[in-house]
């Protein structure tokens, strides 16, 4: 397992890139995600594996997880900075939940296709809830404080 900071950085960048291709460039989620997955897979297989063995062992898996999260609709994630937070949650969950899909024979999700997408969906749900609470309780307080200050 790569250090947690590497996982989180890769996750944020990958999520933001997919979101940019998906929403900003309007190329669609499938194209955006597939491009990131393929580039990360090729980069790992033909370059990183030989030159940096061990350091970035989880690189394609983390990039893939965040790229699945980047397929989210603009209805739920409004801009690229919010996508950065989703990437942060996805990377953190990938690190914290790795025992569920590691090479341990007891791991229920070991080798199961779709595990990375499941992590992406959980990260999106967590973000949507946090964002909903933030817009409901934090933003109204701030705006009322600003109104009082201007009056």
């Amino acid at each position: 397992m790569s250090p947690v900071y590497q996982i989180i950085i890769i996750s944020i960048i990958s999520g933001m890139l997919t979101y940019t291709i998906n929403v900003k460039l309007k190329k669609g989620g499938v194209f955006g995600s597939a491009l990131i997955v393929m580039v990360s897979g090729l980069l790992y297989k033909f370059y990183l594996e030989q030159h940096f063995p061990g350091i970035v062992a989880t690189f394609p898996a983390v990039a893939t997880t965040a790229s699945y999260a980047g397929m989210v609709s603009e209805k739920y994630v409004k801009n690229i900075w919010q996508m950065g937070i989703v990437g942060l949650i996805a990377g953190t969950l990938f690190f914290a939940g790795s025992t569920a899909f590691s090479d341990n024979s007891e791991a229920w999700f070991r080798g199961v296709g779709g595990t990375l997408g499941t992590i992406a969906a959980i990260a999106c749900f967590a973000f949507i809830s946090i964002n909903k609470l933030y817009t409901r309780y934090v933003i109204p307080k701030n705006s009322s404080c600003q109104n009082q200050a201007t009056q």
Partner: peptide, 15 residues
Amino acid sequence: AGIGGKGGTSAALST
């Protein structure tokens, strides 16, 4: 629908 990771969850369930 619209949640990133819908495909992955469908795939994990199907697997």
